[in-house]
Design a protein around this nucleic acid. Structure first.
Lengths: 217, 217
DNA sequence: TAATTTCTGTTGTTTTTACAACAAAAGAGG
DNA sequence: CCTCTTTTGTTGTAAAAACAACAGAAATTA
């Protein structure tokens, strides 16, 4: 349990909650730990939207599949990050995505319904306002993804994604968290076409890359 | 002022705020009314993200332009709907989109910063939790847009959009709120190509339409 | 109502992508 | 080290989209 607290200290939903109130907050949220093997489902599309997950270790992918089976990685959730909170907060019945463990992962499951039923409670108040900030930021992330997807050509999508990465890590050289297939899924383009386009961009002197290490020129 | 209250009654950010507290809430938010002519800017990209708008009448478009000038209508905001709240709640400095009046519009401008500085206030509490639900739902909307944009072909994008409309209005026959150019911008495809595709889909018996009235077959 | 402007549909050409099939490279396990 | 598997890059072909240019329809205004 001590290890959990170590992770929670750095999780923004618990910002401004004093360490000695953390246990209360977890009780309030009926928190419990669960383990998932790489590739196994955390939630399947259609599950009730009551529960929210916090990644204690490992990596979680939020996946949407269309009727042709094109996978779309909506988001990658890493240690200390939340998932499912949007569905819980929006008050919908079933989640419209699947959640899979991308690595062996430990997840803290929490019940958010309880949070909305305790007005004027200080801890609840803080959780609520932290949550608002988190959800708002997630919305901005989705906006970024829309920025990428609204580009017409594969090259523009790649450039939009890479520019985004540069901004995020502050350097023109960086390591992307996807392999080629995952990147293609994220950008919603064909892997082989993307690979070809990456090759052209390298020859053309726009970018350089080796495996997952990219550099803008 | 009475007319404003009439609109606010049905606005979900003021849900569960008793009518006699509404004035207090508006004071708290430093609300003031502003008028915008069709086509004129409400906020330009780069403006500070302190203010939030509520459409009292008319119609507002949230616009993002890429460096080639392809317009992308991120959202259409109608009477009784909020805009800019995500940027204010996320705590960023400048807004990354432009906001234009799509019609002559009345807007209620509010300062959200004040809301985060009044903990344990009942009205604030309610506003906060309403806001959370709103932002979460907006996130879901963006997810829907991503669902559309992640489709590879124009036809699939059109079908995804139309299916979405059917779900939203509960009938296979409906009127879309865009003209052809706006729809193309929303779907991030070429207008003429989309028009051609619509024609093919009609001839093929997939859909029927006349002007803005569509019907799925 | 006529003139003008805006919107929509059509068509041909060029560019880009999807698709498929395969080759090369990199990794994993024995 | 070799074999097997996975990942990545390459190429040719067919399909789709972007683009451009224009014609007809609809809406607006004088």
């Amino acid at each position: 349990m001590k290890k959990i607290f170590e992770v929670l200290k750095n999780v923004s939903i618990f910002d401004n909650i004093p360490p000695d109130s953390l246990g209360d907050a977890l009780d309030l949220l009926k928190a419990r730990k669960a383990l998932y093997k790489k590739g196994s489902p955390v939630f399947l599309e259609g599950s009730p939207a009551d529960f929210v997950g916090l990644v204690l270790s490992g990596k979680i992918h939020i996946i949407k599949e269309d009727y042709y089976g094109n996978r779309n990685i909506v988001a990658e959730v890493c240690q200390g990050e939340l998932f499912g909170e949007v569905f819980a907060c929006a008050g919908i019945a079933a989640i419209p995505v699947s959640v899979l463990a991308a690595d062996d992962s430990e997840v803290l499951l929490m019940d958010f319904k309880s949070m909305f039923m305790q007005p004027a409670d200080k801890t609840c108040d803080t959780l609520l306002s932290n949550l608002l900030k988190i959800v708002a930021n997630k919305t901005l992330q989705l906006n970024q993804k829309i920025d990428i997807l609204s580009k017409r050509t594969t090259r523009e999508k790649i450039l939009a994604y890479l520019s985004m990465q540069i901004k995020a890590c502050g350097s023109p050289e960086f390591i992307i968290p996807f392999n080629r297939q995952e990147l293609a899924d994220f950008l919603c383009v064909e892997r082989s076409a993307m690979s070809a386009e990456l090759g052209r961009m390298k020859r053309y002197g726009l970018i350089d890359f080796k495996k997952n290490k990219f550099r803008m020129l």
